[in-house]
Nucleic acid binder design. Sequence first.
DNA 1: CGCGATATTGATATAGATCAACTAATGTGG
DNA 2: CCACATTAGTTGATCTATATCAATATCGCG
Lengths: 241, 241
Amino acid sequence: MLTDNFLRGRRRQELSDIERRTLEDVMSAPVTLPRRQTVTHRGDVVTKSTFLVSGFMCRYMDGANGLRQLVSVQTPGDFVDLHGYPLQRLDHDIATLGECTVAYAPHDKLTELMERFPHLGRVLWFSTLLDAAMHREWIFRLGRLDANGRVAHMLCETYARLDAVGLVTDGSFAWPLTQQDLAEACGLTAVHVNRTLRVLREAGMVEVSDRVVNMLDWNRLATTAEFQADYLYFDDHVRTP
Amino acid sequence: MLTDNFLRGRRRQELSDIERRTLEDVMSAPVTLPRRQTVTHRGDVVTKSTFLVSGFMCRYMDGANGLRQLVSVQTPGDFVDLHGYPLQRLDHDIATLGECTVAYAPHDKLTELMERFPHLGRVLWFSTLLDAAMHREWIFRLGRLDANGRVAHMLCETYARLDAVGLVTDGSFAWPLTQQDLAEACGLTAVHVNRTLRVLREAGMVEVSDRVVNMLDWNRLATTAEFQADYLYFDDHVRTP
DNA sequence: CGCGATATTGATATAGATCAACTAATGTGG
DNA sequence: CCACATTAGTTGATCTATATCAATATCGCG
């Protein structure tokens, strides 16, 4: 099913078969989006939400100097703009990184669905709050870590999230971000990201090349990143109230 | 009523009288909390949420070097840790800045309440997403603005939020944050915040002294901050779906 | 083949950190 | 009510992480 990965990377919540099936019924047929394309602009009114089946997307804001600041990277299984359902209007842009497959969930159908399954409503709420938790960690990353720590933290988080949806093999995973993208995520320049990656590589912690990340020494990388995975809420399976 | 300010600073959503009254009934009697006290720690399981009646609170994360990184400042009318309702466990610490008055809403009662009033449920969801929107802007602030811009942005946001709940008089408002706090919010050192405030003051944009902020030139301050208030969702009154 | 996108490396500049000293205000115990 | 500690703010001197500018290398692709 399309939603096989939904909440697998956000697995705290279990969905019943009927909930899962109903959610699936609400989705449009999958659509392919080309790489590096902005699909929603700040201020746009949204009436459907995008479920990311495969590929990577990102959310970002434009700065006056022309550079953008990424505020999130979305991985398969994410409901990219579910927050647009209560917000109705977006405060940032959304773009694809690599080529993506997505399916759409119209908001009016989500409303019906949540009336029938209040528990599913709280699961969806939970999912949007997980994004907020990642935002907070992102703030920490920018505010308190140096360049090595920021890049390392970014890679640790991505590893953990992709691992949860089965997209890690032998410590390595596909990664469509360029050094420029990584720079825009970490509040650094592309040049400095390049040097930072060299440091991490020469230290034997991680290799990033050819759109593939190879985690060589998780422990040292996580230490450099001050990474603690608790904010991803993977560690327990609790039913929502 | 205690909740008079609820969603006044988040005023997109209107509550009916009955919703408002029911929400009020769920709240504990108001409690006073002393200044500069951590009230919840990362990892704590929470079974009630805190409604901030008056005063300022903040949420923060500890870095390895001992410094903390603020990830949000909460102002009167905010449901400080409503996200703890779906999340059940917090990924950050919560503390008071100045002295505060709060009231608590037990989570089991919130569940009942949302079953009776699904619309109110979406309003609460909306409220937590507003925090996420502020997180995103915070990421932008740290990733793309220099020290002047960061401090200016912080002050612009606070001004806008306090204005919405009627806590601004003649362009000035009470502000319990020390320069150290502001530094921990902006990813700067206290020394540099001090110099930054001097620059903004000498430029005639804003005066921060004696726990009071005086906005002297909103336009220039907002330009310095690249501040656009749309992410606070004040501009329109739309009913949730 | 040649062109745009990406990655890499070196040289230099700078915003902000760090270290240090001092002031002013506030509180507190004797 | 004083003596002294504590907290917050201010300013100067120096250091450093990262930005900026510039050149070259590599690679996929039309």
